[in-house]
Amino acid sequence: MNRRHFLKQMGQGSLLVGTGAFPMEALAAAKPEITHITLLHTNDVHSRIDPFPMDGTKTQGLGGAARRASLIQQIRKQNANVLLFDAGDIFQGTPFFNFYGGELEMKLMSEMGYDAAAIGNHDFDAGMDGLLKQLPHANFPLLNINYDFTNTILRNKVQPYKIFQKEGIKIGVFGVGIELQGLVAEQNFAGTQYIDPLIPATKTATFLKEEMKCDYVVCLSHLGYKFNDNKSKICDIHLAEKSKNIDLIIGGHTHTFMDKPDIRKNIVDAPVVINQVGWAGLMLGRLDIYFEKSRAAQCAECKNIYIGK
């Protein structure tokens, strides 16, 4: 907050400089100025609006949108710089979806202040018209760069990327989705052209970093963490290792619970963090990212500290 105000003053002109040395001193005396951004994320919530019922199963009593909402609120009180994302498969899994087609899911996510979401394969389960019908209930964009919706009713309804600014730090976010053929009933995505995400992902990430001057690039991915039965299929690990300019992949699809984020090296040997938090809203992921203004290198070292479940 202070920093932005300070920069604004600087930007307004050099008059202040002439009248006194105050800003120069402030600049010199500044401790390494740190901007702390908290990224919160979910994936594959699958219409889990209520906690799992108390029926003796392993997940009984866990999850629930209202509790997630209050946890998010609590975190927002500690740090105003929060970004909240979902990596797709918002829909399908409880009667709430069968009855209301995803309306409540979108309304709840809007209430919670989600900033963006990727599109999962199950988000097509009510067809493209079903998805289109729910978009007015979402006050956040769906992001995707590798589904070409030009010949469908979703044309211009999905954004490729969105840039968020927090205290002058620019976070570029884009979305990628899994191949739908063989996974989604054909009539539910007819006309949608799937494009292998690898090349467009690097292209978008490079655009965000170099042209849009983003400090950090996040990919919301519904590709899946990895596929043991099909090692050549594009997944988050492949995406991380074969791309560049992506700093973080927030994943989904494979319902993977991770003990700690997976850190891979990309084609230019820069680290890429992959994180995913299972499914059904059983977990909320949190990544605290600290940006230091006064140091020159970008992401020379990324530390990951596992704080615990």
Binding site: P32, I34, T35, I169, K209, K213, C214, D215, Y216, D247, L248, M258, K260, P261, V273, N275, V277, M283, L284, G285, R286, L287, D288, I289, Y290, F291, E292, K293, S294, R295, A296, A297, Q298, C299, A300, C302, K303, N304, I305, Y306, I307, G308, K309
Partner: peptide, 11 residues
């Protein structure tokens, strides 16, 4: 780009 000094995770 700004120097990314740290990334911490919590579940």
């Amino acid at each position: 780009h700004r120097y990314l000094s740290d990334v911490k995770v919590k579940y």
